[in-house]
Nucleic acid binder design. Sequence first.
DNA 1: TTATAAATGTATCAAATGTTACAAACTGAA
DNA 2: TTCAGTTTGTAACATTTGATACATTTATAA
Lengths: 224, 224
Amino acid sequence: MLQTEILCQSPIFRGISPDDLRELFSRILYQVKTYQKNDLITIGGEICDRLLIIQQGSVKAEMTDYSGKTIKIEDLAAPWPLATAFLFGKENRFPVTVSATSEVEMVSIPKPEFVKLLQMNSLILNNYLNTISSRAQFLSQKLKFLSFKTIRQKIAHFLLEKAGDRLQTVEIMQTQGQLAEMFGVTRPSLARTLSEMSQEGLIEIDRRTIKIPDKNRMNQLLKS
Amino acid sequence: MLQTEILCQSPIFRGISPDDLRELFSRILYQVKTYQKNDLITIGGEICDRLLIIQQGSVKAEMTDYSGKTIKIEDLAAPWPLATAFLFGKENRFPVTVSATSEVEMVSIPKPEFVKLLQMNSLILNNYLNTISSRAQFLSQKLKFLSFKTIRQKIAHFLLEKAGDRLQTVEIMQTQGQLAEMFGVTRPSLARTLSEMSQEGLIEIDRRTIKIPDKNRMNQLLKS
DNA sequence: TTATAAATGTATCAAATGTTACAAACTGAA
DNA sequence: TTCAGTTTGTAACATTTGATACATTTATAA
């Protein structure tokens, strides 16, 4: 049984009224499947040719490693969609194995039918395009960050990004520990590098605010 | 002047006949702009509210760093689209500054008009979705690779990925130098680690083929 | 075959970062 | 204030990787 009041909360159907959504669904083919706790919903490696949206209950996504063991990746609950990034593109396979962690109702829309939905309603189209574009942008940012090798470079990038064109001082909201985790380094290593950069006059630290006296000099760090 | 014979070679319009494409364009608003060599086409940070496709000529994309200097990112030529990943999503700004490297004709389609195109033609819709999804998938893969810290882990991931479930031996097509570049490490470091792993019995190297006697043991490396 | 270039194996040393440990400074609640 | 928990600064040492150099092996073309 389709519950459009819930589905319209999903990122993909956001902004559509439950009634409109019901009307849209009446014009396509779809299934609502029920799973019991621990039932398998998708298997990693399986072809992804339909969009799955959790209508009721919660699931967990696990990845199978090379030795066959599974590692939990994330928990998802209604009304979230599954694997939106793998419905299109070159690699049309579920990257993860998904199983129910409670009684679950799953709306399953075959890819061609979902394409119809996208063409019928520009809001859905925009929502979906925004979802996967944002993901690509997020990944791109993350990748750029990781591309800086040394801790100094990561700090320089982080600070210059935060400062923008205008500001000369940056207010840090995270603890050193959180920053270190973002940077993928250990906390003492980050502290050491900050202290070194401070001694060299690259930055001036006062509690949670960091001043960059010479942005050009800081920028040099990103070159090598 | 719109040249649909060229545009239909573009990833976004692939599979559409020049005539059909002309008909589709007749139903939307668009512009064809001409630029002379060295003219600026987009400026980094500018709002990205239109799709740009190179119809004639070539351009270069440059990124402006914090000190105002520019670094060349890539060269693009007809019939390639620009910044497809930034038309939608949260960050609607061109990440790069694009300028003409020859006389250039650029087709400019405002975002709402492009959305119309997507809705009118399911092939264009599929092409576009495939383009940005593939990008997200590519980035995701790259990120996973970079998330392994030590060279041992990168090698283990690379080999296990190549071997899949079945095979016990992997044939390497690249030189060590190329592999090292993929991994983002120096060639001697890679060679040293390979030789250490070989001594420990983790792998057996014979020219370009590598055997993995114990995949479980290899898999352990990815855990810590 | 031979000459040449490319690829590989290996060694040494330096630099960067991780690991562990502990003290000092800060923060918030009783 | 006082005290417990968190955050920060810093030190000593281990580990990993980079940089450089050079000999050896392998591939390629004349």
